[in-house]
Design a protein around this nucleic acid. Structure first.
Lengths: 344, 344
DNA sequence: CTGAAAGCGCTTACAG
DNA sequence: CTGAAAGCGCTTACAG
C-alpha cells in the first residue's frame, strides 16, 4: 500500500541507494538522474518513512520536554506556553520535533523520561524546572544524555548546562524598586522552596531588605491560590506595622492577591502595592495593570533549545550557561509612599 | 555501546525472538525462561529501542497535535494548556506520546502535518481548531488518516469526527442570562469568523436577541487586544442607547475589556456587565471575578483523545461526535438592571 | 514452548 | 557517478 524507496527505484530503473541519495540531494548524483527519480517520486506520491530513517541514522530529530504538571495552578500559568513557544520556534527552525511528557506524578514522569532516553525516542531533553534531589536529573547525568535545564541546578552545577534568569537579582531589583518608592514593610508571597527558582527569589528579597537595613520580613511560602491569598491579606492587615507592598513571584499569585484585595474593597496601589513576575499579557490586562519583573519566558525557552541543539551538533562543546536578563516593567500596581507616611 | 536484544539473547542463551516474546510477556513462554531473560536484561541494563519496534509494527504510538499559534494573543489564552492537559491525561494513560506542531504560518503547519502523516511519525492527529477551507483538513481526509477535530467542521461534516461544545447554545445561554437580568442592549465582542467557533457564537448571540425581540445588535469582530478593547469601549459609550453589557468569547478578551473599563474609571458590574468564555482560573482571579461560560476545555481535550484512540483501536467504528456540555458560572461581573433603568 | 528466517524502510561504507 | 550488500533493532509468521 505505502510506496517505498524500492518502488521508486524499480520504476525509475535505479538502485534503492540511488533514490536514497537523491532524497538527500547528494552532490555526486547527476542532475539527470535526480530529475528522473524525482519525477517518479512525484508520480508515486512517495514520502520517506521517517521512522526507518531514524532507526538507521540513530537520531530521532526530536527533543523531549519535561514539564511538571503537578499543581493545578500551573495549568493556567502563562510561563509554560510562553517558554514552549520559544523552544518551539527554535526547534522548528532546526527541523526538530517536540515530544512532551504527560505524566502527573514524579514517578510517572521519571518512567516517561527513561522511556524516551533509553528507547531512543529523543536526541536530547529540556527540563522545565530545577528541583532538589531530582531522580530525573540524576538519570540524565548518569546516562550522559544531552540535556539543558531551564532554571539553576541545585547540584552538579559544573556538569549541567542551564538557561536561567538571575533570580536573586530579579527579586532583589523589584524589592529595591519598592524600597525606593518609600516602602519599608514589604511582604513576600512565593512558592515552594524545594524549587530552586523560589529559593533564589526568596534570597533576593531578603538581600534587598538587608541592604536597605530593613528588619521586618514577611514571608509566605504556600502556593498562592485564591484562598491562600485571602489568608495572606488577612494576616498582613493584622500586622503592625503592616506591610504596604507585596512581592509575588508569579502572575497568577499576583492576580490572586489582587483579587483578595478587591474582595476586601482595598485599592491597589492606594492601599497596597503589588508586584508580579513573568510578564505575559496577564500583567498588562489585570486591573490595575501590574508592575512586573519581565523574565522573558519566550527567550528562556528559545535559548534552552538553541543551547541543546548546539550541544547535539557539537557534543564536545564547552559547557555554557546562559542568563537571560530581566527587567522591571512599571505599570500601575505600585505607587510612591508619601514622605510623611513612609515614616510612620 | 547500546545493548540490544541480541546481546540479551546471547547472554541468556536463547534466541532473540524469545527475548522479544519475554518483553511482550507472551503467554507461551515458561515462567522459568522469562525469569532468566529478565535477569539478564536487568544485568545488562537493556531497554527496547522504541524506534525499531515502531518500524516493524508500523505504529508510532504517538499522536500529533495541530495547533494554530498564529496570534500572539493565543499564547496566553488558557484554552490551549487546559485542552492539552486533557489530551495529555488520556494519552498518557493509553501509553501514547504527544508530538506537537511548531509551525507559525499555515504553510509551515501544513508541511509539518504532511511530514507527520506520510513520515509515519504519528498514528493519528488531533486538530485544535476548525477553519474554513483548510488544506490540512483536506489532506487528512484525502489520505483517510485517523483524526479528531476539536471544534465543528465547516465542511465534510459527515466524514469527520469531532468534539465540540454547542457553541450556538452556549452563546445564546449567556446572552439570555443577561437579558433575564434586565439588559436590553448587549454588545458582542468576538473573534475572527473564519473560525467556526466564532461563527457559532455570533449566531447564538443573535438568536438570543431575536427570541427576546431585541432589535439592537452590536458586533465587534476584531481580536480583542487591549487597544481594540479601548476602542470598543469608546464606541460603546458613544452609542445611544448604549449597551449595558458585553458578551466576550474568551477570557483574555474579557480581561481586555475589564482593563479598558478600569482605565476609564468605569465600574464592573455597576457601569457595565461583562461576561467571558472558557473558565480557567483567570475568570476567578480577575477583579471582579467574571461570570463565564465554562466550556470545559480539559474535557474537550480528553474526549478528543479518547475518541481518537477508540478509532485507532477499532478503525471501523461508527462515526461519533461528542458535545461537551457548557454551563454558566455566575460570579460578579454582571448585575441586574433595576426595573426602572431597564426601561429607559 | 522455542528457534531460524524474513522483513519493516531506510542509509552508508565499499567497490567499481 | 551508481549499485550490491550489510545493517539499524526489532517482531512475527512458520516450523518443529
Amino acid at each position: 500500500m505505502t510506496v517505498t524507496i524500492k518502488d521508486v527505484a524499480k520504476r525509475a530503473q535505479v538502485a534503492p541507494s540511488t533514490v536514497s541519495r537523491v532524497i538527500a540531494d547528494h552532490p555526486k548524483i547527476t542532475q539527470e538522474t535526480k530529475e528522473k527519480v524525482r519525477k517518479v517520486m512525484q508520480e508515486l506520491g512517495y514520502h520517506p518513512n521517517l521512522l526507518a530513517r531514524k532507526l538507521v541514522t540513530q537520531s530521532s530529530q526530536t527533543i523531549g520536554i519535561i514539564r511538571k504538571t503537578s499543581s493545578k495552578h500551573s495549568l493556567s500559568d502563562p510561563f509554560f506556553p510562553a517558554a514552549l513557544q520559544g523552544m518551539s520556534d527554535l526547534l522548528h527552525q532546526k527541523e526538530y520535533s517536540i515530544l512532551l511528557t504527560s505524566g502527573e506524578s514524579d514517578e510517572e514522569i521519571y518512567r516517561e523520561v527513561v522511556n524516551m532516553v533509553q528507547g531512543k525516542s529523543v536526541d536530547g531533553m529540556i527540563m522545565l524546572y530545577s528541583q532538589d534531589d531530582d531522580p530525573v536529573l540524576r538519570l540524565l547525568l548518569e546516562r550522559n544524555f544531552p540535556f539543558v535545564m531551564i532554571g539553576k541546578p541545585t547540584d552538579h552545577m559544573d556538569k549541567v548546562m542551564y538557561v536561567d534568569n538571575d533570580n536573586v537579582k530579579a527579586a532583589r531589583d523589584i524589592t529595591e524598586y519598592l524600597i525606593r518608592a518609600g516602602h519599608e514593610h514589604i511582604a513576600y508571597a512565593g512558592g515552594d522552596p524545594r524549587f530552586e527558582v523560589h529559593k533564589d527569589r526568596e534570597h533576593g528579597y531578603k538581600q534587598a531588605l538587608k541592604r536597605a537595613n530593613i528588619q521586618s520580613e514577611f514571608m509566605f511560602r504556600q502556593e498562592t491560590s485564591k484562598e491562600n491569598a485571602r489568608e495572606i491579606i488577612k494576616k498582613i492587615f493584622d500586622l503592625n506595622p503592616r506591610p504596604t507592598a507585596i512581592v509575588t513571584t508569579d502572575e497568577l499569585a499576583a492576580m490572586s492577591i489582587l483579587s483578595a484585595l478587591y474582595e476586601q474593597k482595598l485599592r491597589v496601589p492606594d492601599d497596597m502595592a503589588v508586584t508580579a513576575f513573568t510578564d505575559s499579557m496577564l500583567s498588562e490586562l489585570s486591573s490595575p495593570p501590574m508592575t512586573t519583573v519581565n523574565i522573558n519566558p519566550f527567550q528562556l525557552g528559545f535559548e534552552a533549545a538553541k543551547t541543546l541543539i548546539d550541544l547535539l551538533e557539537n557534543p564536545s562543546m564547552m559547557k555554557r550557561n546562559i542568563l537571560v536578563p530581566t527587567s522591571i516593567v512599571v505599570r500601575e500596581s505600585c505607587k510612591k509612599i508619601k514622605e510623611n507616611e513612609a515614616i510612620r
